[in-house]
């Protein structure tokens, strides 16, 4: 059978994966703190039909060889951690991280997750939580008599109470990874530590390479619609052309079978 069939099939499945990744990016074009994924391809192994420098006739060696590749595979997907646009919301509990760093989120089972989505809320117990209701680590409690809340560039949470007194009730801490692309996506804008990401390094916003906290802003998704649409078209056409290769191969075989039937 033609090797080309399976080769073109690898091309089609790789392009299909590219469409899947692009579709997910496009679906999250308005998701706060979302980071686009990029898929990178690799060529597959080659079968050697003739070695380089093989002797073709006595004393004559070929300058080249004969190797036919077997297609492509999706090497890996990687998150692109370029900053998204910061959009002013004027809501004091909306925060954006201008630079590197993640907010730490404590899950109900006690494990930690990481996010760049800073649309914070206050729950019934007065605790700062994410939009999904998971508490921020280290936890910050807002006293019930608070009138206004202000989050500083270093993450300090300042509260003005009804008596007019101002106090710092806690500080948001940021975490960073040596390889943020190695974090696994857990949905709900949350990321989890993996073997590949390395262990988290925690610190204060604005120090040691951590980004500053911008209160009243949200970081939009870093998905660029035009880029994604271009990727989509490219993937679609590449898919099409690979399916053409299968069709052409099919016609070749059909020709051969017709001869055999003669």
């Amino acid at each position: 059978m033609l090797r080309a069939f399976s080769t073109a099939a690898t091309g089609m499945s790789a392009q299909q994966m590219m469409v899947d990744v692009t579709a997910n990016n496009l679906a999250n074009i308005n998701t706060t703190g979302f980071k686009r994924s990029q898929i990178d391809f690799q060529d597959l192994l080659y079968s050697k039909l003739r070695d380089f420098g093989a002797e073709v006739s006595s004393g004559i060696k070929t300058p080249g060889g004969m190797e036919i590749g077997s297609g492509v595979r999706a090497g890996s997907t990687v998150k692109v951690f370029s900053g998204g646009e910061l959009v002013n919301t004027s809501r004091p509990l909306d925060i954006a991280i201008a630079g590197d760093g993640f907010l730490q989120v404590r899950m109900p089972d006690g494990s930690l997750r990481y996010t760049r989505d800073g649309a914070l809320q206050i729950n019934a117990d007065g605790e700062l939580v994410t939009a999904m209701g998971y508490s921020i680590e280290p936890s910050v409690s807002i006293p019930s008599n608070a009138v206004s809340i202000d989050i500083g560039k270093d993450g300090s949470v300042n509260v003005l109470d009804d008596s007019g007194a101002q106090s710092v009730v806690g500080t948001l801490q940021l975490a960073r990874f040596v390889n943020p692309s190695g974090l696994s996506s857990e949905g709900d804008n949350l990321l989890a530590e993996t073997e590949a990401s390395g262990t988290p390094i925690t610190g204060t916003a604005g120090e040691n390479g951590f980004g500053m906290i911008q209160s009243g802003f949200l970081e939009k998704s870093n998905v660029q619609m035009v880029t994604e649409l271009v990727n989509l078209i490219t993937a679609q056409r590449a898919y099409e052309v690979n399916s053409r290769a299968i069709k052409a191969g099919d016609e070749m075989l059909k020709n051969a079978i017709q001869i055999a039937g003669y």
Binding site: L2, R3, A4, G11, A14, D43, G249
Partner: peptide
């Protein structure tokens, strides 16, 4: 020709490989 065809299919499969 079959080999040439395999080669073309491999090139086409790698049209998006950086």
């Amino acid at each position: 020709l079959t080999q040439e065809f395999d080669l073309i299919a491999h090139n086409l499969a790698n049209v998006s490989t950086p």
